[in-house]
Design a protein around this nucleic acid. Sequence first.
DNA 1: CAGGTATTTGGCAAAATAGCCAAACAGACA
DNA 2: TGTCTGTTTGGCTATTTTGCCAAATACCTG
Lengths: 100, 100
Amino acid sequence: MDIKIKNRLEARAKIFKALAHPSRVLIVEELADGERCVCDLTEKVGADISTVSKHLSVMKNAGLVLDEKRANQVFYRLRMPCILKFFDCVETVLEDLKNE
Amino acid sequence: MDIKIKNRLEARAKIFKALAHPSRVLIVEELADGERCVCDLTEKVGADISTVSKHLSVMKNAGLVLDEKRANQVFYRLRMPCILKFFDCVETVLEDLKNE
DNA sequence: CAGGTATTTGGCAAAATAGCCAAACAGACA
DNA sequence: TGTCTGTTTGGCTATTTTGCCAAATACCTG
């Protein structure tokens, strides 16, 4: 397969991968309301802080979130508002599945 | 965490997982043009037909595609047109990343 | 029914991902 | 500087995912 096409497919898949975990979905939902520090997200997710930090790193690496250090806290926020529209679509899919 | 919330997060993550692989991204792109038989998709993807069949099974299980057997071929098609809007959004994300 | 094509399934090995702990780091502030 | 808080990184094991082959299945056609 053409290397260029392959790269494009991998780039797209990387973004979906960054969303393909329940904790990361929760993180996106939280960030939809505005920025959050790692500590807030850790509490919500209910996992070890190192685990949450690694999730955030995956999401940052995929371009889904931005981070900003202020004092000794790091705040994350959604980089792409359109991500939220994904979620509406997913909701539609799920509703549709329920009505079978 | 509330079991209900957990189920919702997992349901959403399942859909993203079904998109989180380069071959499956390619399959969605192909199906955007209309239904395809497994043999067509196998040729495009360039993997073993059993591999492609398993990818399709993941996607079907997540509710992304529908299958229909006609004669001795199985045709797959996108179940949710809004999935394609996902892709537009992803494209925006990628463009944005490029311009850094 | 026999043989052919198209697809799915079982099984296994390789690769990728997840999650915890402990250790390292960074910044604030006495 | 020493210590405290918040975060990231390294390292390890456990789990999940991927992809091939071989075998099973489904349907058509002679």
